[in-house]
Structure formats: structure tokens, C-alpha cells
Design a protein around this nucleic acid. Sequence first.
DNA 1: ATGTCGGTGTCGCACCGA
Length: 264
Amino acid sequence: MHMGLTLKIATYNVNGVNGRLPVLLRWLEYAEPDIVCLQELKAPQDKFPEAALLDAGYRSIWHGQKSWNGVAILSRVGEIHETRRGLPGDPDDTQSRYIEAAVNGVLIAGLYLPNGNPRPGPKFDFKLAWFARLEQHLATLISLDAPVICMGDFNVMPTELDVYAPERWRDDALFSPEVRQAYARLLDQGWCDALRERHPDEVVYTFWKYLRHAFERNAGLRIDHVLLNPLATAMLRDAQVDTGVRGWEKTSDHAPVWIELSDA
DNA sequence: ATGTCGGTGTCGCACCGA
């Protein structure tokens, strides 16, 4: 990162990048993020709206997949130097859930962690295995001599404060002890949960189901997270959720989350 | 259990995953 620079970096689970394109473009214009990670593209590799995003001022790299998953990194502040797509450790994992790139002197890791329901079951086992691979990989990134930002839909509520009705989520794959412990181990590695760092005691949600007017009732969850290595943590100036976006027409069930980093 | 989306397949309504 260059001296005197401020970067606004965001993550947004769009829940279908093509069905959601008008909302995505509207949010980019409204929020003016410099770097963005997207999840749940739900688009094959050749159906990503590269041209529309270029028109909006963003270049992109993406890892698409038919029907499900899919992650992307957008930048309006220079080239995106891809360093990795897919987590190491399982050659049989074909799901597009991880993408990583160097942009403007910072390393960006964008991820979409498996949902894992129903628990118990093979999907839950896959979630734990994926989490273990993430843990291993992030251990290799935390001490890099550059700010590292690992962000996305983790499908984990880290604490009771992050769930509108904790008792109803006890057995769910998003709130199970194994998964919360895995998230806590990332923090133990030294990663800083940026949103919680800036809002220690506040109820902050990033996701509300479409069902039963969850947003209107603020029956939400905090499952989209921004993790910072120590160098990035020292530059953290702000972290917020664009909650209003969740109230827009034809919106995603997630709201965008962003941070501001500055070396000034 | 509830009930709401996008994407996909087979064709105008079913299913799946979330």
C-alpha cells in the first residue's frame, strides 16, 4: 500500500450476480468501494457480467460455477494479480469458493464457506474439512509483509451476540460448537474480526432471511466477516454494514460489509 | 414447520440449495 492512501474494501454475497446485477451496480455507485469480494455468483464462468462491471469502472477476476457458489474480486484501483483460486488440500474439491489476489499492495482473499446443513451429515463434514483447509492456508498468510484482508460469507455466527435468537440456532451448522470453535481458532492465529473490533458491544447483522419479514423484524445474523492480519489491523479506520441495501427492491438476503484502511 | 428467493430443467411450473 502506498503512503497516504485510503482504501475502501467490501464484501457482498450477491445471491446471483446476474439476477442481482441492477442492485449490484446501484450499490457500487452508492458506496464507491475500491475493492470488492463477491460471493454466490450462481453463474457459469462465461456468464459473468464482466462488461457491465467494466462500464461501471471495475475490472474483475472470478471463479464461476453452474447453479451454485462462485466468487469474484473487483477493483477500481488498479490491476488484480491473481495469486490463487481454490483452497489447497483437496484435489477433489471442485466447488468455486475461494479466490485470492494482490491489488494495490494489499492481499485480498475472498471466500464463500460451505453452509453445512443439515447437521450432522456429509455436507456438515465437508464444511468442517473446508474450514480446516482454510485454517491451514490462512496460517501461511497472516505474517506476510503486507496488509492481508480475508473476507466473505463464512456461514458462521461467532457468538450469541451475532444471532437474533441463539436458542433456535443451537443445532444449526452455522452456529454449532465445532464451527464456532474453528472460527475462534482463526482469531487465535491473530486475525482481527474488523466489524466486531469497531463495534464491540453492538448488535450488527449482515444477513436476514427472505422469510417472514426477517429484515423488518431485524431477525438477522452476522455471518459475513472481514478478517485482518496485524499489518492491516493497524490501518483499520472504519468497518460498517450497508444495512439499507437489504431494504432495496430485488435485493440479496445479505447486506454489503465494508472496511476502510489508511496508512495516514 | 414456516415460507422466499435465484438458477436450472422442462417448457410455464417443478425442484434444489440457502
